[in-house]
């Protein structure tokens, strides 16, 4: 008997199987002594448990016990969501306006450096073309002499 059949048998004993499957399993159990023995055993356990469970007492009432857990959960949620905001506000209250003034001063001082430069100002400083087919042109650039030269020669 495989575990799957054992589990199905347990569900059958507990009345949890659909009618068609329950009928199939009942027919199978009628011809299988092992299934019958296990079914008997499971029914005996099921019958014995409800009346023989040991009574346990806890120091707090059930309501107090679950209430304590619920309050702890609520405190944890408040800590996760609210506390960072209060910390940030407290920090801003203490140092925020000084930081803002410092940042403003820094921006003013850094303005010449931060001013956007056109990309072309940093790009290579020459681009040459000659649309004529009978003209050869080439360019050279002398950084030392500070000049860009396009030389045009007719064929």
């Amino acid at each position: 008997m495989n575990p799957e059949t054992e589990l199905k048998l347990q569900a059958w004993v507990d009345g949890e199987l659909p009618a068609a499957e329950a009928a199939r399993l009942a027919a199978q159990a009628a011809n299988d002594p092992a299934l019958q023995a296990l079914a008997r055993q499971l029914r005996a356990v099921k019958a014995a448990l409800p009346g023989n469970e040991l009574a346990r007492s806890v120091p707090e009432t059930r309501e107090f016990y679950w209430g304590t857990i619920q309050r702890a959960l609520e405190r944890a949620e408040v800590t996760d969501t609210v506390r960072p905001v209060w910390r940030w506000r407290a920090w801003l209250g203490a140092y925020g306006w000084r930081t803002a003034l410092g940042a403003a001063l820094l921006l003013v001082l850094a303005a010449p450096v931060l001013r956007p430069r056109h990309p072309a100002a940093l790009a290579p400083q020459v681009q040459v073309d000659s649309p004529l087919e009978n003209v050869n042109s080439y360019t050279f650039r002398s950084e030392a002499d500070g000049m860009t030269v396009m030389w045009v020669s007719s064929q």
Partner: peptide, 27 residues
């Protein structure tokens, strides 16, 4: 040259302000 577009040179304005030259030349 003689009415025909012979060539084009691009040069940074900043480089020109700093004294560099853009030259188109030929035979």
């Amino acid at each position: 040259g003689e009415g025909k577009h012979t060539g084009t040179v691009h040069k940074s304005a900043e480089a020109l302000r700093k004294g560099q030259l853009a030259i188109i030349a030929g035979d």
